[in-house]
């Protein structure tokens, strides 16, 4: 066991942690922040994406002890203090970019990261920006539309969506 001190969503935590424990399991089991999900445990699906010192990581591939002294942000830190949704979350809601919801927290982290690096990404850049995160339900289209809408770049032609014939 080793003692670690870190900041998560602005709050300070100090815990004794087993050296082999992943950051993902530390967040979910020791801290009780279960918004971050485990989809594969092998760094393949992106469901466990969180911010660590301003950059996204697969928290299943990081040991908790590696996060000693770090500044983390998880999905629980995405909403405002009054519980209102962030611009990215609102756009996801508007575009039905959520179905089962299990990939959603990791996807939102990845989208935030993309928008920090590229405030006005093109469609192509959005597609490549979220490539790291699996979604089995939506087929990604409504997620891409949500991201383009956040930055005011969704073409009018795509706003109607379903075509009645």
């Amino acid at each position: 066991m080793r003692k670690i001190r870190l900041r998560i969503n602005g709050d300070l935590y100090e815990r004794d942690v087993r050296e082999s424990k992943t950051l993902l399991h530390f967040l979910r089991e020791d801290v009780g922040l279960t918004g971050t999900k485990e989809g594969c445990g092998a760094g393949e699906c992106g469901a466990c994406t969180v911010f660590m010192n301003g950059e996204t990581v697969n928290s299943c591939l990081v040991l908790a002890v590696e996060a000693d002294g770090a500044d983390l942000q998880t999905i629980e830190g995405e909403t405002a203090e009054d519980g209102s949704l962030s611009a990215v979350q609102q756009a996801f809601a508007r575009h039905h970019a959520v179905q089962c919801g299990f990939c959603t927290p990791g996807m939102i982290m990845t989208v935030k990261d993309l928008l920090q690096r590229k405030p006005k990404p093109t469609r192509e850049e959005v597609i490549h920006g979220i490539e790291s995160n699996f979604c089995r339900c939506t087929g990604y289209q409504q997620i891409v539309e949500a991201v383009l809408d956040v930055t005011g770049q969704l073409p009018d032609s795509e706003k109607e969506g379903l075509k009645y014939v």
Binding site: A42, I127, H128, E131, N133, G139, G161, Y164, V165
Partner: peptide
């Protein structure tokens, strides 16, 4: 039995254009 050897589609596998239509 893993995502490394059994791939599922990611966003880059999306068709360039998708049109959804309904008949009622």
């Amino acid at each position: 039995p893993s995502f490394t050897d059994n791939k599922i589609p990611t966003s880059v596998d999306m068709p360039l254009e998708i049109e959804c239509m309904v008949v009622e």
